[in-house]
Amino acid sequence: MNSLVAQMQAVLEDAREALAGLSSLEELEACRVRFLGRRGEVTLLLKDMGRVDPSERREVGRAANEVKAAVQEAFAAALARLERGRSLASGLDVTLPGRLRRAGRTHPVTRVMDDAVAIFRRMGFVVADGPDQETVYHNFDALNTPEDHPSRDPQDTFYLADGRCLRTQTSPVQVRVMESRQPPVRIVCPGRCYRRDTPDATHSMNFHQIEGLYVDRRVSLADLKGCLEEFARELLGPQVQVRFRPHFFPFTEPSIEYDFSCILCAGRGCGVCKRSGWLEISGAGMVDPAVFEAVGYDPEIWTGYAFGMGIERIAMIRHAIGDIRLLYENDMRFLAQF
C-alpha cells in the first residue's frame, strides 16, 4: 500500500477517536482546525499528492478523497450529536403538570340508574316517566293498597296541601302507563321517590328507584326470575345469583322478595351481608288481578310481573358505601372517586 494512503487511514482513525470524545461545539471547532483547517492534518496530506508517483496518482487520489469524505462525514455526525444534546438539555420539562381538560364525573347514583336503564332497554324495556307529586289514587289505591295500610300513614308519606302526596315509589308510573295503553307493555320507571324517614346511615327522605313492569300473554314468574337474574349478572357480574323469597305486597300475587348473592364475599358471608351470603334487594311479583281490573286490563287474558329496586341501595353495595348520606353531601373528594 502506498504510504500516503496508509498515513491518511491513520489520520482518519485519529479523527474518529478525537470526535468521539468531544462534548462541546467549541471542542468540535478546535478539532476541525486540527484536521480540516488550512494547515490541518488531512489538508496537508492532500497537498502531498503532488509528490506521488504519476502511475499511482490516480489510485492514491481516489483513496485520499474517500478518506477526506469519511472525515467530513464523521464531523457532520459529531455536529448532529452535539446539537441534539444541546436541544435535549434546553427542552421542556415534560414532567410538569399538563393543563387539565378534565371530563366531569358521574354521580354514583346516576351511574347505577344509567346502567340499570341500559340493561333493561337491551331486554326490550322502554323508560316511562311520571310526576313526583302524585295522586293518592295512583300511589296507593290503584296499587291495591288497603285503606288502613301503614304505608299511607302521614308518619311515612309526605302529603301536600292539595291532598296529593310525594310519590313513595315509582309504581304509580306503571299505573299511569297501563291506564293509557293496552298490553303488551314492557316498561321501566326510574325516578326520585320520597318517604318520611329521618335521615341516618341507611335512610334518606328522598331516594331513587327503578321499577319494571311486563304485561303480556303468558308472562310467568319464571320470566320474572330470568329477567332479574339477567339484570343482576349484567350489573354486578356473571357470578351473581338471585334468590326469591315469598313475601306480601298488596299489588302483586304471588309476591316475592328477592336477594342477590353478596358480591363482596361471593356468598360466603361477610359483614355487609350480615353473614348470610345474600343481599336483600327489593320486592317483586306477579301483578295482582285487582290492579289489572283497576286499569281496565282483562286478567283472564293478561298476566304480568312487576319489580322494583332502590338505586342508592345498589350503589352502596357496588361501591361498599356504608352511609347513604354521603351520596347527597357532594363532597368533591368523594365524588371524584367514581
Binding site: 381538560r101 378534565r102 371530563a103 366531569g104 364525573r105 358521574t106 354521580h107 347514583v109 346516576t110 313526583d132 326520585r192 320520597y194 334518606s204 327522605m205 328522598n206 351520596l327 347527597y328 357532594n330 368533591m332 365524588l335 371524584a336
Partner: peptide
C-alpha cells in the same frame, strides 16, 4: 344532557329535594 355536561368538565352532584 348529563353526558354533555360531564364532557365540558363538570362533575355531577345530587342534592336533597327538601
Amino acid at each position: 344532557v348529563r353526558a354533555e355536561l360531564r364532557a365540558v368538565g363538570l362533575d355531577e352532584t345530587l342534592t336533597y329535594s327538601f
